[in-house]
Design a protein around this nucleic acid. Structure first.
Lengths: 138, 138
DNA sequence: TATAATCCTATCGGTTTACTAGGTTTTAAG
DNA sequence: CTTAAAACCTAGTAAACCGATAGGATTATA
């Protein structure tokens, strides 16, 4: 299950991407428009800034803005930062690999190969969709 | 992330499927062979029985056995029972649908369409794999 | 009758989630 | 220079969930 954090983060990025001008967008505006708790959203925006998706400007008239073009932001990257691994099991994760305690050998594990297939299917979808693709969906 | 419950459940089903005869398999045997806490596994086996995947026989020489052929058990069904929804967001779940609090309209939600794609990709994989497919993977 | 198995209920410590509170700092506008 | 508006930061917290564990009750076999 996708956490609310990730969901809100994606919505916020999409909201910013939808604006034509590149003027900073305030968290308060996004929180109102997208029905997200403002304080919670603030912490998410901060994380998106620290991980290089957003820039920010402080003070009056400040806000957040995209650093890259929406078309260059793959959803895999966004989800990995906000949610963590895309794989359903750590032992098939490309970016967050962890060995299972119980499995003596991954090659003979019945769950392993199945989850690799699921992972690859998800990666295909999330890797082909960019922020631009999802921002202008309607 | 797949819960351990689901992971253990799949492993247990695969273990039983691998046996040629249809004699009941004890939870204790599975728990030893697959390195799963016995008490925890017991509760999982019970759930698998109540949901119609397994039959059971009590008392000495008892255990659990498959009710259907492994080739007839789709992994979608197993995961839905043990884990719940396959979708990453309730609002795109086929079997566990729930409306989002924040979304006024799913059709204009940027997350929605993306998650439908992910869901469908996962469903493809999990629907095409049966217990037989994953039990005899090596 | 002893033993081995499932079945059942309850509990529990730890972690995560989704916030909330309460500020500090920076900047622009008046 | 003052005020307001914005990001930034730290901490805490209630609730839910997870992965077990405990302790037995029930049932069947030998």
């Amino acid at each position: 299950m996708l956490s609310k954090k990730t969901k809100y983060g994606i919505k916020a990025l999409a909201y910013i991407a939808r604006k034509k001008d590149r003027k900073p967008v305030q968290a308060s505006e996004i929180s109102e428009s997208e029905n997200i708790s403002q304080k919670f959203l603030e912490s998410i925006m901060l994380e998106l800034r620290k991980s290089g998706f957003l820039g920010s400007k402080k003070g009056k008239g400040g806000g957040y803005y995209l650093i890259k073009e929406p078309g260059e932001i793959r959803m895999t990257a966004v989800i990995r930062v906000l949610e963590g691994p895309i794989a359903m099991v750590p032992c098939v994760s490309l970016n967050y690999y962890e060995k299972c305690d119980d499995c003596p050998d991954e090659k003979t594990c019945s769950v392993h190969k199945l989850m690799i297939q699921v992972r690859d299917a998800s990666l295909d979808v999330l890797g082909e969709n960019t922020l631009e693709d999802i921002a202008f969906t309607q």
